[in-house]
Amino acid sequence: MMDILYFAWVRERIGVPRERIETSAKTVSDLVAELCGREERYQLAFSDLSSLRVAVDQELSDFDASLAGAREVAFFPPMTGG
C-alpha cells in the first residue's frame, strides 16, 4: 500500500488531499500512468508534468525515480514559500 498526497491546485483537480492505493508501479512515471488510466480527473491534474513536482517519502524527487520501498508519494506544483 502507498499513500499518495496532493497539494494546491493538484489537490483541487483530483478532489482529495490524500488516498491510499495498491500499486505495483516501479517508478513515479509508472504511477502517474496508472493513475491517469483510472479517471479523467487524474489526466487533468497530470496533463503537464513540467508544471509538477514530486516528493518520494518527503524528499524532492524526479519522475523517473524508483518507487522501491516507497511509502508516500506527493504531487504538487512548484513551491512558493518565503
Binding site: 494546491a8 516528493a55 506527493a74 504538487f76 506544483p77 513551491m79 512558493t80 514559500g81 518565503g82
Partner: peptide
C-alpha cells in the same frame, strides 16, 4: 535561506 525557502520549501500560496 530566503532563496531556498522560495522554491524548495513545500509551501503554496493562494
Amino acid at each position: 535561506l530566503m532563496d531556498y525557502l522560495k522554491s524548495r520549501a513545500p509551501f503554496w500560496k493562494r
